[in-house]
Write a protein that binds this DNA or RNA. Structure first.
Length: 321
DNA sequence: AATACGGACAACCGCTTCTAA
DNA sequence: TTTAGAAGCGGTTGTCCGTAT
């Protein structure tokens, strides 16, 4: 026999969560910690499926979640990771600990996909170097639509690249209780301060005590367990194939996401990545809270990776670091 | 002013993987 | 070892809101 069912299918409430439900859920988790979601609806009286409770907590109520205002840095990370990993939102979110997979997925579908599609369309007609120089060259063949695409819609100003400067964004949507959700998260902050891990701290996976929220943030799923982890063989294989694809496309100066490549071997890229990574000023990185860089992370940090550079150049993205 | 349309995002659905009994 | 439910995850849908007509 397996486990008993998590909850009755009848009488389950669907749709948006109310502030009252949020408070009930947060209060319960404060007292008991997340996990054992099957018992949450029963113990709280919430007419929600356990799955819905877990999702609500991990995506919106847990402390440390950063909402809205994706920085250009984050955009760059998402673009690179999506090119590398595909639609593995949970894996991508693991490199952006303050963002949930759902948030990243929505942002990709509503913002970045459109931008990249427009970029690829434009790129098919004009390679990046020419396009970039075209703005100052009236004799270029690039048409005005594409120029405006890059100068307007695509213009992530480098002036905003500094992480201290938040990208200008439209007013937040006035969803019925987004603000109350935020308030609930804020309420939890003080509580978290007394815990073993402060809000938003990048987690390691060393602590197995699931009795408190901060530990469970490291270990639960659905966006909850955002840990820096070693690259899997599958990811490494995919990375290799992307590099191979870039090399194949090199003759046409077109690579993944419209990027060019130097045609370096995988080994050369890896070595170069390690070398450059070593040249970065890592003094501010706390090894205790930020584990040693993985292969993938080194690649992301590698400013000499030509494909990344070109994408950043064309999209006016800031250097990742 | 009313309506239509599209964008943005929260939440749900369904499939896959993990794990407790 | 088997089985069935929990958990994880990505895709899709529903709803709200702002803007254009």
């Amino acid at each position: 026999m397996g486990r008993p069912p998590c909850c009755d299918k009848d009488g389950i409430k669907k749709g948006p969560w109310t502030p009252e439900e949020d408070i009930i859920l947060v209060s319960y988790i404060q007292e008991h910690g997340p996990g054992n979601w099957r018992s949450v609806p029963t113990n709280t009286g919430l007419l929600r499926c356990s799955k819905s409770c877990r999702l609500r907590w991990t995506n919106y109520l847990r402390p440390g979640i950063k909402r809205g205002n994706f920085t250009s840095h984050e955009e760059g990370m998402i673009i690179h990771l999506q090119a590398l990993l595909g639609n593995k939102w949970a894996a991508i979110a693991s490199y952006l600990p303050q963002r949930t997979d759902n948030d990243i997925k929505n942002y990709w579908n509503t913002h970045l996909k459109k931008k990249l599609k427009g970029f690829q369309t434009a790129f098919q007609q004009q390679p990046p170097t020419t396009m970039l120089s075209s703005s100052s060259n009236p004799n270029t063949t690039i048409d005005n639509d594409h120029r405006s695409l890059f100068e307007g819609q695509f213009s992530f100003k480098r002036a905003c690249a500094n992480d201290n400067l938040v990208q200008p964004t439209p007013a937040p949507p006035s969803f019925c209780y987004a603000s109350s959700t935020e308030n609930i998260s804020r309420l939890l902050e003080n509580w978290m301060k007394g815990g073993p891990m402060s809000k938003g701290k990048v987690a390691t996976n060393n602590n197995n005590n699931s009795e408190n929220i901060s530990d469970t943030i490291n270990s639960e799923g659905d966006g909850g367990g955002r840990t820096i982890r070693a690259i899997s063989q599958e990811e490494e294989d995919k990375f290799d194939s992307i590099l191979s694809f870039n090399n194949l496309e090199n003759d046409n100066n077109v690579g993944v996401a419209g990027a060019t490549t130097t045609g370096d071997s995988v080994e050369e890229n890896i070595n170069e990545g390690e070398k450059v990574c070593g040249d970065h000023d890592m003094d501010n990185i706390d090894e205790e809270t930020n584990p040693p860089l993985t292969f993938l992370e080194k690649w992301l940090l590698d400013e000499t990776t030509s494909s990344r550079q070109v994408v950043e150049e064309i999209l006016q993205l800031p250097p990742i670091f």
